[in-house]
């Protein structure tokens, strides 16, 4: 199945993945061949099958509404690439 460079770019943008032009072409080819392989699923008659999102037959797994201690913020903030005080810092979000 052939897919276009534009499609690869659209997908890469959705996934926030920067791709160089050469990579776009490279992935276009590979994606095409993998999708070609995947196409074999069209042969299966699934008209009466319900999609199986969970392999286990378990239901109603809850947690009680009881407060548990939060984590020490410093433990988390030490991993931050950029921070200010107790905030995580990112380039300005354009509203």
């Amino acid at each position: 199945m052939a897919i276009s460079k534009e499609e690869v770019k659209y997908i890469a943008n959705l996934a926030r993945l920067g791709l160089a032009e050469a990579e776009v072409e490279h992935f276009r080819e590979q994606l095409g061949s993998i999708l070609g392989y995947i196409d074999k699923l069209k042969k299966v008659d699934v008209s009466k099958i319900i999609p199986m999102a969970h392999v286990l037959d378990i239901k109603n797994v809850y947690r009680q509404d009881t407060v548990l201690p939060s984590i020490d913020p410093q433990k988390v903030l030490q991993n931050a690439p950029s921070r200010e005080g107790q905030f995580f810092k990112v380039p300005k979000v354009i509203e």
């Binding site: 947690r63 009881t66 407060v67 548990l68 939060s70 988390v76």
Partner: peptide, 16 residues
């Protein structure tokens, strides 16, 4: 999660 659902705490303190 079990973090308190409350308004007005110091930033990034009700976190896990």
């Amino acid at each position: 999660c079990g973090c308190a659902n409350e308004f007005g705490s110091k930033e990034n303190s009700n976190i896990c």
